[in-house]
Simulated assay, not measured.
Amino acid sequence: MTTAHSNIAAPSRSTDMGSLAVLFAALLWGTTGTAAHFNQDVSPLATGAFAMGVGGMLQALIARPNILGCLELLLAQKRLVLLGAVCVVIYPLAFYSSMHLAGVAIGTVITIATAPLAAAILERLFGNHRLTLSWYISLALGIAGVVMMAMDETASHGVTVAPASELNARGEPSEEWQRLAGIVLGIIAGVTYAAYSLIARRMMDRGTHARAAMGSLFGVAGIALIAGLGLSMLFSDPRLFATLGNTSVALYMVLVPMFLGYLAFGYGLKTIAASKATLLTLFEPLVAALLAVTIVGEHIAPLGWLGMALIAVCLVIQVKPNNREL
């Protein structure tokens, strides 16, 4: 009896730790908006490319022994590695562009709400995971909560734009087209985030060490980002390191959310499905909102607080003890 109980309890504890690791990663990612607030006129693309690029290469460096130990497996899965790396490259470019075009609230909501849906669809198409009723309930609560927070932020911090005729006179897209483009990019960001999460989990299921899987994906993507967009943005937007504050933000983004956060996320993916991991990252806007209130000084109306409560219920459902794996 004791042995049987231990065999049952160990996977449950492992799954619980995996869920907590993903929540920890989402907590770190939720600090990026507040950190970027202290940047002085720095392009969000420059910050994102530098953070994801250098953070990815640091992951590869730390995972070097694991990558070498799994080199044969990685070479056998080179198509998965390249596909996952492409998704990692696309994700920050689409995400930051979405926020720039559609606004921070809409861009973040579209991306975060799309990710768990995309992960579930991809797992149904390319895997054998069955989604539970609790997953569907928590997804509905989580998306409703994020949308409420976005509606609250949009109402409280409306964006002032130039009239359509003035934009047309300058030869620029209208505000409606920019927002539509931002929404499309947000969907792309959510899908690519779900895709590389699923690819990393698939590599782990095939015997690749978690650090080797994440390190290989983010290492290849990091080289591409720094060699391509990262360097070009540094030349065209040198303000990334123009002040001590900007430099501190850039280094923080690299070392904490992108490096430490993705190490925790990779650990969590070892024991839980990608669809559950992406759902747990709904914790990110909750953290971002709380930091915006306590540090930046923003205001959240009752609708926003209700949305935060729904997200909290969603997360409780997902991390409760003995919650069945997706």
Rank of each mutant, 00 (worst) to 15 (best):
P163E: 09
F50S: 00
I188P: 06
V42M: 04
G84D: 06
S174P: 02
E153T: 15
I311V: 12
L269R: 03
G53S: 05
T114D: 09
A181Y: 12
E298T: 04
L326K: 00
L71V: 12
V81T: 10
A164W: 07
M99P: 02
T132K: 01
F126Y: 15
S12P: 02
H299K: 15
V256R: 00
N168R: 10
S232E: 15
M52K: 03
L290Y: 12
K320H: 11
A60D: 07
A250W: 04
A250T: 08
G230M: 06
S43C: 06
M151E: 02
E176R: 00
G55K: 05
R64C: 11
L229P: 03
L286G: 05
N246R: 14
Y96M: 08
A164H: 07
I143F: 09
S97D: 01
A292D: 01
Y91W: 05
L217W: 09
P92E: 04
T111R: 01
A36W: 00
S134A: 04
D41G: 09
Y136M: 03
I62W: 15
V161S: 04
T192C: 09
P238E: 09
A118P: 11
V296N: 12
P11A: 11
A119P: 11
A273D: 09
M203F: 10
S98R: 01
E298N: 13
A194C: 14
Y96W: 14
L269H: 00
A264F: 06
A144Y: 02
M214R: 00
D205G: 06
R79S: 13
I62M: 13
F38D: 01
N66G: 05
N66H: 07
R79H: 08
S134R: 14
R179C: 13
I226E: 07
I311G: 00
L71Q: 11
